[in-house]
Amino acid sequence: MKATFQVPSITCNHCVDKIEKFVGEIEGVSFIDVSVEKKSVVVEFDAPATQDLIKEALLDAGQEVV
Rank of each mutant, 00 (worst) to 15 (best):
E27Y: 07
L59N: 07
E44Y: 15
P8Y: 10
I19T: 01
E56R: 15
E27I: 11
V34W: 05
K2H: 08
I54A: 01
F31I: 07
I10F: 06
E56M: 14
S9I: 05
V23L: 12
V23Y: 03
L59M: 11
D52G: 08
L59Q: 09
V66Y: 10
A57Q: 03
V16I: 09
V36F: 08
D46K: 14
G62Y: 11
V42K: 07
D17F: 12
E27K: 10
V43W: 03
Q51M: 15
E27L: 10
E64C: 15
D33W: 15
I26C: 03
S9R: 05
C12T: 11
D60M: 14
E37N: 06
D33G: 10
K2I: 12
V41T: 00
I19K: 00
V23R: 04
F31V: 07
F22H: 10
I32M: 05
C15P: 05
F45G: 00
K55W: 14
Q51C: 15
V23T: 03
D60P: 03
A47D: 06
M1D: 06
T50P: 02
I26W: 02
V29R: 00
C12Q: 09
D46P: 01
V65W: 09
S30R: 13
I19S: 01
A57I: 04
K38Q: 08
V29A: 03
F45A: 00
V29G: 00
V36D: 03
S30L: 12
N13P: 11
I26M: 05
V65E: 05
A47K: 09
Q63R: 07
A61P: 02
K55H: 11
F45P: 00
V23K: 03
I32C: 04
I10G: 04
Q51E: 14
V36H: 04
K38N: 13
V41I: 08
T50C: 04
T50F: 03
I54E: 02
I26L: 09
V43I: 06
S40I: 14
E56A: 14
I54M: 02
S35F: 06
D60V: 10
C15V: 11
V42T: 13
A57M: 04
P8M: 10
V34T: 04
T50W: 03
V36G: 03
V41N: 00
I54L: 04
L58I: 13
I10E: 04
K39E: 05
A47N: 06
S35Y: 05
K39P: 02
A47C: 09
V23M: 05
K39R: 11
S40A: 08
F5K: 00
N13V: 15
T4Q: 09
F5P: 00
E56C: 10
M1Y: 10
Q51R: 14
S40Q: 14
V41P: 03
F22D: 01
I26R: 03
E56F: 11
I10D: 03
C12S: 13
E20G: 07
V29I: 06
D33V: 12
P8H: 08
D60E: 13
S30W: 11
S30K: 14
A49I: 01
F45H: 00
L59P: 00
K18A: 09
G62H: 05
A47M: 09
A3I: 14
T50N: 06
E64Y: 12
K21Q: 08
I32V: 11
E44F: 15
G24Y: 13
D17I: 14
G62V: 12
I26D: 01
F5C: 04
V66P: 06
K39N: 06
E25T: 09
P48N: 01
K21P: 01
